[in-house]
Write a protein that binds this DNA or RNA. Structure first.
Lengths: 307, 307
DNA sequence: CCAAGACATAACTAAATCTTATGATACTTT
DNA sequence: AAAGTATCATAAGATTTAGTTATGTCTTGG
């Protein structure tokens, strides 16, 4: 008897569900040849062809249908084993996967990790930097257990809890004309400014773009691949940007050639929050955690939870 | 979420069942540190200690008990998947493990493989040379699916089917006084001869020793580690031995300095047979196979199935 | 107090797995 | 039709995982 591996079964189910090696490969964060090889191996061990390969994807064979049903049972049992073991109702333990979006990771992760460790000393955090969409996919498939991202997320597969509000600040080069303004800046001042955005795929880009629209401002053509690049571009005088408050200390600290100013009135912001699978037992663990992080955070002195 | 591997679960169950890392390591044919490492990894991933290590073995912790129950379910489901997939009721397919005892392997394996391939063209044989006890353990644990050994085996976990009788011949150096006898030799002639045996652990050793006892002959102190060594010892004049007929052509072919003679009367023999788990669906596949092998065998022209 | 047996640790080796680059084939678009 | 763009397969090389042998630590029984 030749035993398949759980990984082969996971890959098989992912391909069967998506109907495509390539799509499943993206989902599973491996290359497509890796799947080809593993499925080939699985087929060899079982002695049946599982997929009918076409040029527009793949189709399950009759054998594939049978194996799929049983593979799902196996995987469900394993998930059951894991979920039943990795907590005692109050505290997590073992290896917990946490996904964080790139525009939060460098700034608030330290606080999150600190609060997490305090609340769940027997758990071992494994952190993945993922953009919102990938994060949700990963969460859905059980590759990670917890996400740190900007709320809201509209999906009934998940539950979430807010941690704090993260206001947007105007960030400009030190020699900018608005740099010497003492009072909060009105949103309308954005009009006519070249606002640099992050590249596609970052939720922060969309949020900032939306604010620009609100101010009838046309964002710059220039795109930055990361917050670090973005702030350097601003420092270099290529334009201004809306910097999340949580990133202020790191990206606009003294001596970096960047000045930040708050906006006047009802300020625009994004909500920092935790998200997890609805199926996770004991949701309280995570709502409590979100509250603790909000309470003990250091990344932003002024932000306050908006209920 | 961090996934355990099926291998870790198998190791875990083996250790839990045997109550010892070392014993389980032997069973699984890996070294004890390999188990230590895998269990450590499993414990890390789950965040619980599974065993209480003592100096007289190990004991399941309360967490261990819970995981054990679920791990069994997982493994059972996987076995179900495999067994449901790897045959269509008539023919096997995929990777089939066959265990063969060392005193059969070199001589009758070719015939077995030939018959097997003819009957199950879509299956891929994977052959393991194992002494009877290890073979049965392997079979029990699903590492192999089929065994080729000397019957009878007393255990209701297994089913078996006879293939052929394998008579014992007297093998002696060409210059031996009995070498020129034309007629079958009486068993009593063994008395006084130095009969060389295989080393401990080979079932053939026990069978031959029993025959010697029957003939009131005291086996030699000398032991051979394999049939090949054994026949060379005989050729070198160190003694005589009882050679299974199936090995005659290979070990006592012309020019090897060994002469073989049949015994008179009701000849002593061992039964060549197939064995498999009782739980295997469609036993007919294997009884048919045993019959085919017996019918198409070439390793021994004179042997006949004794029903 | 020593020897034996149990599991853990360390250093090294072997094997399984993944990645990148490339190939083959069939639709789609121009 | 020719070119382009999907698809999955294959190949070569790098990486990671798992396993082996040798050794250490601790307990127990003689």
């Amino acid at each position: 008897m030749s035993w398949p591996t759980l990984q082969q079964l996971r890959y098989f189910v992912a391909i069967a569900d998506s109907g495509s090696f390539s799509v499943a490969a993206d989902q599973q964060f491996v290359s497509q040849p890796a799947l080809s090889a593993q499925i080939k191996e699985l087929e060899r061990k079982l002695g049946v062809t599982l997929f009918e390969r076409t040029n527009r994807g793949v189709l399950l064979t009759t054998h594939g249908v049978g194996v799929l049903k049983r593979a799902r049972v196996v995987l469900r049992e394993v998930v059951g084993l894991i979920e039943a073991t990795m907590h005692d109702g109050k505290r997590l333990r073992g290896e917990i996967g946490l996904g964080v979006i790139p525009t939060f990771a460098p700034y608030i992760l330290p606080d999150v990790v600190r609060s997490f460790k305090a609340a769940h000393p027997d758990a071992e955090l494994r952190i993945f930097e993922l953009k919102t969409n990938d994060l949700l996919d990963s969460l859905r498939r059980g590759e990670i257990d917890l996400g740190l991202l900007a709320l809201p997320v509209f999906s009934d597969e998940f539950l979430c809890a807010p941690i704090a509000e993260d206001k947007f600040l105007l960030a400009m080069p030190s020699n900018h004309e608005l740099a010497h303004t003492k009072s909060p800046i009105k949103l309308e001042k954005l009009r006519g400014e070249r606002v640099i955005l992050l590249e596609e795929g970052h939720c922060l880009r969309d949020q900032v773009a939306q604010v620009c629209q609100l101010a009838f401002s046309e964002p710059s053509e220039i795109q930055a691949t990361s917050m670090a690049t973005l702030s350097q571009m601003v420092a270099a005088g290529m334009g201004v940007t809306l910097l999340p408050e949580c990133a202020e200390k790191v990206e606009a600290g003294s001596g970096r050639g960047i000045v930040t100013r708050r906006f006047a009135g009802q300020s625009t912001s994004r909500t920092i929050g935790l998200i997890w699978r609805r199926s996770w037992p004991f949701t309280e663990m995570f709502t409590d955690l979100a509250e603790q992080i909000g309470k003990n955070k250091r990344f932003s002195q002024t932000a306050n939870v908006q209920k």
